[in-house]
Computed example of a mutant assay.
Amino acid sequence: LTRYLMAEAASSREARLSQLKQFMPEFDPDQWQLVRAGQRVQIIKPGPKGRGTLEFGTEVLTTADKSLAALLGASPGASTCVSAMLEVIEKCLPELVTGKRLQTLQELIPSYGRSLQHDHRLLADVRRHTLTTLGLAPKPQHTDAERSLSA
Score class of each variant (00 low, 15 high):
S83P: 07
R51A: 07
I44D: 00
E55N: 12
S79I: 10
C81H: 11
C92G: 04
H129W: 15
V35K: 09
K139E: 09
E59P: 10
P94G: 01
V97Y: 00
R114A: 00
L54S: 03
P140D: 05
A124L: 06
E107G: 11
L86M: 09
E8I: 15
D125A: 05
P48V: 12
T143H: 05
E90Q: 13
F56E: 15
F27A: 02
Q42N: 13
H120K: 09
G99A: 02
T2K: 14
I43L: 14
G57K: 06
L134P: 04
A151Q: 11
L122F: 01
S111C: 09
K49S: 13
T143F: 03
Q33C: 11
H129E: 15
D144R: 14
L136Y: 09
A84P: 07
L5D: 04
A7C: 10
S79A: 11
W32N: 12
G99I: 00
L108Q: 08
P76C: 09
K139Y: 10
R13D: 03
Y112N: 03
D30R: 15
C92L: 03
G77A: 05
V126E: 00
A84G: 05
W32I: 11
S79P: 04
G77H: 02
E14H: 03
P140H: 06
L123S: 00
K49L: 11
Q117R: 14
S67W: 07
F27L: 11
Q19S: 14
E146W: 04
Q39V: 07
I109E: 03
M24P: 09
E95A: 10
L1T: 12
T143C: 02
D65C: 06
T58A: 12
P138W: 03
K21W: 05
I43G: 04
R121S: 03
V60D: 01
H118E: 09
K45A: 13
L105H: 05
L34W: 07
A70S: 05
P110Y: 01
R121C: 08
V60L: 08
H118G: 06
